[in-house]
Amino acid sequence: MTNPNGNSPEPITPISRSSFSLQRYLPQDASITRLFIIMLVVFVLMAGISPNTFLSLDSFTSMSFQFPVFGIFAFAMMLSMISGGIDLSIVGIANLTSIIAASVMVRMLPAEASASESLLYILLGVAAALMVGLVCGLFNGFAITKIGIPPILVTLGTMQLFMGIAIIVTKGQAIVGLPELYTKIGNGSLWIFPVPLLMFCLCILGTYVLLNKQSYGMKLQMLGANPTASFFSGVNNTRVLLTTYAISGVLAAIAGLVIVAQTNSAKADYGTSYILQAILVAVMGGVDPRGGFGKVAGIVMAVLTLQFLSSGLNALHVGNFFKDFMWGIVLLLVMVINEWSNRRKVRSIS
C-alpha cells in the first residue's frame, strides 16, 4: 500500500485495461492451485472435527444431492460474469421454469396414465422448462444488447418480472404432487451416482466444452476483458451476449428441474438465497467480477469447498444464520486475497 502506484485508480482507457487483464492470467492460475489447497484444508479440517459423521458414505451421498443445485446456478452466474455483466434473475428463471414444468406434469397428466404416458408428459414438461429458460435468457440478452440497459438493471427487473409471472400463474401457491416417476428419477441413482450429481457433471462438461473448445469461449473472454477491442477484432458482441444470457437461462432451468425433483413441489419464491451463493461460488472460483476471466475447474473446487464447509458445520449443529455469516466472511476474504495477489503480481511485472 505504500507504493504510490497501488493507490492510483485503475486506468480505464482501453489500451491499458487490456494489458492489465492480460497480466491477470498469470496469478489466476496460481489461484487455482490455491483453491485446491483451500479445498483440501477444509476437507481435512471438517474430517478431523467430526470424522464419524463427515467421513461416511451417507454424508457424501447427501452432499452430492445438495451441491448440484447451487453448482449449476454458479455456472450460470459465471458465464454472465465473464462477459462483464451479472445475472440476478437466475433464481427467478429457475422458479418460473420449475412451475411451468410442474404444471405441465401435474395438470395435463390424466389421472389413470400408464407409465409410458407419464414419461411422455414428463419429457414434455422438461422440454417446456428448458424452452422457457431459453426464452427468459434471450429476453435478458435482448434487453441488454438491443435496448442497452445495464445487465444488473435488466436482471434486477426480470427477477421481479419472472417471479411475478410465477406468482400470477400459481396465485402464490405451491404446486405439489408431481408424477412419482419424475421424483423417482430425480432422486434416484445410477449405480452409486445420484442423478443430480450426473446433471451437475453434464453441466461441467457442457460449460467446459463451450469455454475451452469452442470459439465462443475465447470471444466471451475477449468481450468481458474489453468490449471495444473485441468489437474491433471482429467479434459480434451482440451475438455473444445473447448466447451467454440464453445459456445462463437454460442452466437456470436445469437447476429448477433438479429443485422440483428434490422438493417434489414448485414454488414462486423458493431459494432466493441461491443468488448470493452463486455469486459467492463464482467469485471464490476465480471469476473476475469485472469480466474477462473464469475457469470451470475453479468453480468446481469452490462448489466442493463450500459444500464441505456447509456439511461440516451441519455436523456441528450450527444454525443456517451462522452459515450466512460464514458465506459473507468467506466471500470478502477470498476477494481481498485475490485482489492482493493480483496487485503484487502487477507490481512485480511493472
Binding site: 500500500m1 467480477p289 444454525g319 451462522f322 455469516f325 470478502l332
Partner: peptide, 24 residues
Amino acid sequence: SLFRLPTLIVTLGTSSMFSGFLLT
C-alpha cells in the same frame, strides 16, 4: 475504497455477514 472491490459484491457479502451475525 481501500481494497477497491466491486461495490455490489462487497455489500452482498457484508449484508449476509451482518444479518447472519445478528441472527446467530
